[in-house]
Nucleic acid binder design. Structure first.
Lengths: 243, 243
DNA sequence: CGCCAGGTTGATTTCGCTCAAGCAATGTGG
DNA sequence: CCACATTGCTTGAGCGAAATCAACCTGGCG
């Protein structure tokens, strides 16, 4: 919505808290200095759009902190949330490398700091340091894998299984598992966005949550989730077709 | 099924009919000679499996001729056909580069000739010629794009729209459009496989075809399809939600 | 205070799946 | 060469999961 009022901030790649997690960690100090010069960093608030589907792609975005949702919508206006991106993740490298416009949108879900590394800089780095290209390639390979997994899931698994899967994925980053197998989870997403992640309507999300409550699989209050036995979630996964 | 009796054939990369279409076209003659030495070529018949989900990944497969289907199945045994690969396409580069086992299977859908380029060869080529890596990267970027498109489609579009989309995609390679907008199409796929491509059951495929016939959108006889007005197919696409 | 976005709930409908049967083409063994 | 499986496709009847439509309820927030 508000495209003009993003706070520009000055950041330093050498002291960036996410440095170790990025693809850029293969760079030499000289090369990193190049990134440092060729970047612009900005702060975003929840709801701010970093780039839109169809926007021209000017370079590559690197997340220093915060949480970003990658959205994609179809002709009819249906929108899904393809994935979440976290500090250290690089966004938009794909459209950039393929020379396309952005084919999905990035929106801040939490207050975030993001650096834009200019196209020229990226290109010259790729030339100087082929390892960087390979890093991106591996990243793409992983994303592709996830996407294909998601295609399979969305056509074959029922909603309960997809939701259980989502919770299990979120667990790794946002969950605390205590010694006896119970799980506490602080969701980083609204119900709507969770619905968008598994490709269902918000109403269905509500009902699915309700049915998990009724079956004592998980208990929700606001964005807090408590799961007494993680195995129950895993059982849900396999419940796509009764074996 | 029959894993042992694949005919080994001797092929030459320099005279390969698909050479111009592969990622390898960026190689020098010296480098191509390396590929030529480090490869094994084989013939496959329809139904033959080139590699299985879970198989260790020994290198990269390059299609000289034929048609290959990339399948993936979930825990419950549901299978979908992720994409088709054609002469010039390179398969398995992703698992190879990520260092994983294969995460999907490749099956010949037509008699095919395929070369396996050994892992060592690929690795040393990537070192020698960084451009090769970038080519793979672009390829991955495109695949990823397609996969994300498919995620969106499969969650938001109804079956008719997905099928119309499939026909439009197949048109580019297998169709003949005559001057007044009519389309003739020779399907490379069985009904089952078309069903698997859009993630539905064979019965639903039958019914969808029937409904297209009844609405005079397309006429099917065996693997021949005739579409009088391509616009009708395009209309179907948008029909996901009435605008 | 009223408004509005996010969320829940209920009633109804629709789309695609399941289960079951039938049919044509192809293959196979006696 | 016929009797019989097998395989790919189609059709029908009934069911169930999720979408749709509509109402309503909450908790901010101007």
């Amino acid at each position: 919505m508000n495209d003009g009022d993003k706070t520009e901030t000055s950041r330093n790649c050498f002291t960036c808290q996410s440095r170790g997690r990025t693809e850029w960690c293969v760079l030499t100090d000289d090369e990193l200095a190049l990134v440092d010069q060729g970047k612009i960093s900005r702060q975003y608030l929840p709801g701010d759009v970093i780039f839109h589907e169809g926007d021209e792609c000017h370079g590559v975005h690197c997340i220093e902190s915060g949480l970003i949702g990658i959205r994609k919508m179809d002709a009819a206006g249906n929108e899904i949330l393809l994935r979440l991106n976290h500090p250290g993740d690089t966004m938009g490298y794909r459209s950039f490398l393929a020379g396309n416009d952005h084919n999905n949108s990035a929106e801040a879900l939490e207050p975030s700091v993001i650096c834009l590394v200019g196209g020229g800089t990226v290109r010259s780095l790729l030339e100087k340091n082929p390892t960087l290209g390979l890093r991106f390639l591996k990243h793409a390979a992983k994303d592709l894998d996830d996407a294909e997994e998601k295609v399979l899931q969305s056509t074959t698994s029922p909603v309960r299984a997809r939701f259980a899967h989502l919770l299990l994925v979120l667990k790794d980053r946002y969950g605390v598992t205590d010694e006896d197998g119970a799980l506490d989870l602080e969701l980083p997403l609204s119900r709507q966005d969770m619905a968008a992640m598994i490709g269902i309507r918000p109403e269905s999300m509500s009902r699915t949550i309700r049915s998990f409550e009724e079956d004592d699989i998980a208990h929700f209050s606001g964005r807090r989730v408590h799961v007494a036995r993680i195995e129950d979630l895993i059982l849900e996964l396999e419940h796509s077709t009764e074996l």
